[in-house]
Computed example of a mutant assay.
Amino acid sequence: MAGATLPTALYGRYQEQLGFGPLVQTTLFASYAVGVLAALVVLGELSDRLGRRPLLLLGLAAAALSALCFLLADGLPLLFAGRLLSGLSAGVFTGTATTAVVELAPPRWSRAATSAATAVNVLGLGAGPVLSALVAEASLAPLRAPYLVHLLLLVPAALVTWWQPETAGSQRRDGGGPAPVSAWRPHLLRPTVPVEVRRAFVPAATAGFAGFAVFGLFTAVAPQLLVEQLGVGDRVVADALVGVPFLASAVAQVATGGLAAPRALVAGCAGLAAGAALLVAGLAAQALPLVVVAATLLGLGHGTAFRAGVASVRAASPEGRTGEVVSTLFVVLYVAISLPVVAVGALAVATDLPTAAEVLGVVVGLLALVALVVLRRRPLEG
Rank of each mutant, 00 (worst) to 15 (best):
E319W: 00
V344R: 01
F20R: 07
A4F: 04
G320T: 10
V122T: 15
R190A: 15
L265V: 09
L265Q: 13
L50N: 05
L259C: 11
V155C: 03
V36C: 15
W109T: 00
L6H: 04
T256A: 13
V244G: 02
Q17T: 13
V232M: 11
G299E: 06
V373L: 14
G345C: 05
T8V: 12
A90V: 00
Q164V: 08
V101N: 03
G124Y: 06
V266L: 14
L259R: 15
A38M: 10
V266G: 06
R185T: 13
A4H: 04
P142M: 10
L23Y: 11
L55N: 04
F80M: 11
C269Q: 11
G124M: 06
L272F: 10
L78P: 08
A264P: 07
G211M: 02
L297I: 11
V92Q: 03
V313A: 02
G231D: 08
A105G: 09
R185M: 10
G91N: 07
G275I: 06
E319F: 02
V122W: 06
G169R: 10
V242F: 04
A371R: 03
W184P: 06
G128V: 07
V195L: 14
A348V: 08
L85W: 02
T26S: 06
G82H: 07
A264F: 05
V251L: 14
S132I: 00
A113V: 03
S170A: 15
T96V: 14
T118K: 04
V160A: 15
L84A: 11
L225K: 00
F209Q: 01
G365R: 01
A252C: 11
A2V: 05
R263M: 00
P194R: 00
M1C: 07
A222K: 04
A294E: 08
S327L: 01
V130S: 15
A63L: 07
F330Q: 02
A30K: 03
Q286P: 04
V122Y: 01
S182D: 15
A136D: 07
V41Y: 01
T167S: 12
R314G: 06
V122C: 08
L43H: 08
L65W: 07
A138W: 09
L37G: 05
L40E: 04
L143I: 13
T26I: 13
A207S: 15
G126M: 11
H187E: 15
L283I: 06
